Simulated scan of single mutants.
Amino acid sequence: MTTDRTDAIAREIIRQHEAGEPFRNLEGDLAPRDMAEAYAAQFRLQEIHAETGRGALGGRKIALASKVQQALCGVDHPLAGGIFASEIHDSPATLDLAAYHGLGLEFELAVKLGADITPDDGPLDAAAARGRVASIHPAFEMIIDRGADYSALNGLTMAADNAWCAGIVLGPAIEGWRELDVDELSGALFWNDEPPATARVGDADPFGSLAWVASVLTGAGRALKAGEVIITGSVIRTRAPQAGDHVRYRIGETAEVELRIA
C-alpha cells in the first residue's frame, strides 16, 4: 500500500537515477523500516515509471538467489524486483554501454509462465511452481549498480531500488526441458576469447527461486501473470562489461543467449 513515506522513497530513488548519482543506502526519514516497506516503495517506483513512460512490467526477478551472489553483495537473503516489458530484448542483442550507469551482467535461467500465480493459490513449493512454467531460457540480466560500494550494501535500499534491474536479454527456449533434470544442467559463460566459466544451474535453485518470488508478490496481494518472464538468479558472479565485449551464455548443449556491447 502506498503511503507518503513509500512515495517519497520511490521518488528519491528515481531522482538519484535521473541525476546520475552513485548508489547509496537510504538514511534518516527515507530509510525503509523493514522489507515490507521496501517492497511497497519498489511497487510505487514501478507505478511512477509506468506513468512517466517506462511502461508496464513484463516480468519479475530474483536477486541474490545463489550463495556466490550473496557473498559478493554482503546480503544474506534474496530480493525480488520487476522487469519492465520495454527492457526485455531478444537474443542476439547489442546494448549501448553509455546508456547505463554502472552496468553489470548476470547469467541466469529465465522461465516464461504458462499460468497465473495469484494470492488465492497460497504458498507454492518448487514442484508446484515448475508446473506453472511454459518454457525455460538462458538469459542475461542487466543490472545498474551506479558504482555501488559492495562492501556496504543494504538489502532494504536495494529492494526499494527495484533490485537494480535494468532489463534482460532472452535466449531461445530449451527444447524438451520437462524431461530434463534442470538443476543438473551446466551453464557456460563465454566472454570474448577467454576460457569458459561454468556453473551448475541448480546452484540458484531456479524453481525454488520462482516459488520464492511468487510468495513475495502474492504475500503483498499481487499476481504473476501467464506470459511473464521470471529470471531466477545468477550462478556466476556479476561482471561489468566494456565496449567491444562479445558475451554468450549457454545452458545445456544448445540453448544460448548472445550479447554485444557497443
Rank of each mutant, 00 (worst) to 15 (best):
R60K: 13
Q70R: 15
A126P: 08
A36Q: 12
I88E: 14
R130P: 08
A50W: 05
A139R: 01
A63Y: 01
K112S: 14
G81W: 01
Q46D: 15
S66D: 09
F140K: 07
G122S: 05
H101Q: 15
A41S: 12
Q16F: 06
A80W: 00
R146D: 07
G147K: 01
D149G: 06
G82V: 00
A80R: 00
L45W: 11
L109Y: 10
V75F: 04
G102M: 03
A139P: 08
G59L: 00
I136L: 10
F23E: 07
L124I: 03
E87L: 13
H17A: 13
A99P: 05
I117P: 13
L72Y: 07
L72V: 03
A31Q: 12
G147Y: 02
G20A: 08
A110R: 04
L113M: 12
I88N: 11
A40C: 08
R24T: 14
A40N: 06
Y100E: 06
A127T: 07
Q16K: 08
V133F: 07
D120L: 07
K67L: 12
D125A: 03
P138Y: 05
V68Y: 04
D120E: 15
A99S: 14
D145S: 11
H17G: 14
A139S: 15
C73D: 03
E51Y: 04
G114S: 08
A50E: 15
Q46V: 14
Q42D: 10
A63L: 06
A38M: 04
E108I: 02
I143C: 11
H101A: 14
F107V: 04
K112E: 15
A40Q: 07
A19L: 13
P119L: 04
A148Q: 03
L113K: 08
L103Y: 08
G122M: 03
L109P: 11
A128Y: 01
G74W: 00
F84T: 13
G28H: 09
L103H: 08
D29P: 14
G20E: 08
H17F: 11
S91F: 05
A41F: 03
L26F: 09
L45P: 10
E21Q: 15
R33P: 09
R54T: 13
G55F: 02
P119A: 07
M142P: 10
D34L: 02
G20R: 03
H89L: 15
H17L: 08
R24D: 12
I14A: 14
A134N: 03
H137R: 04
H137I: 02
L95S: 09
P78F: 00
L57Q: 12
V111G: 11
I88R: 10
R15S: 15
E37W: 01
K67M: 10
E108Y: 06
D120S: 14
E18T: 08
T94G: 09
L79C: 05
R11Q: 14
I13H: 10
H49V: 00
H17C: 09
A65E: 06
S66L: 02
R24W: 05
A10E: 10
L72R: 10
E18K: 12
L113A: 09
A93Y: 05
I143R: 06
E141F: 01
I62V: 14
E141D: 07
R44Q: 14
H77Q: 08
A80L: 00
I62W: 04
E87G: 09
F43L: 12
A71E: 15
C73Y: 06
R132W: 03
M142R: 06
A65G: 13
A85Q: 13
A127F: 01
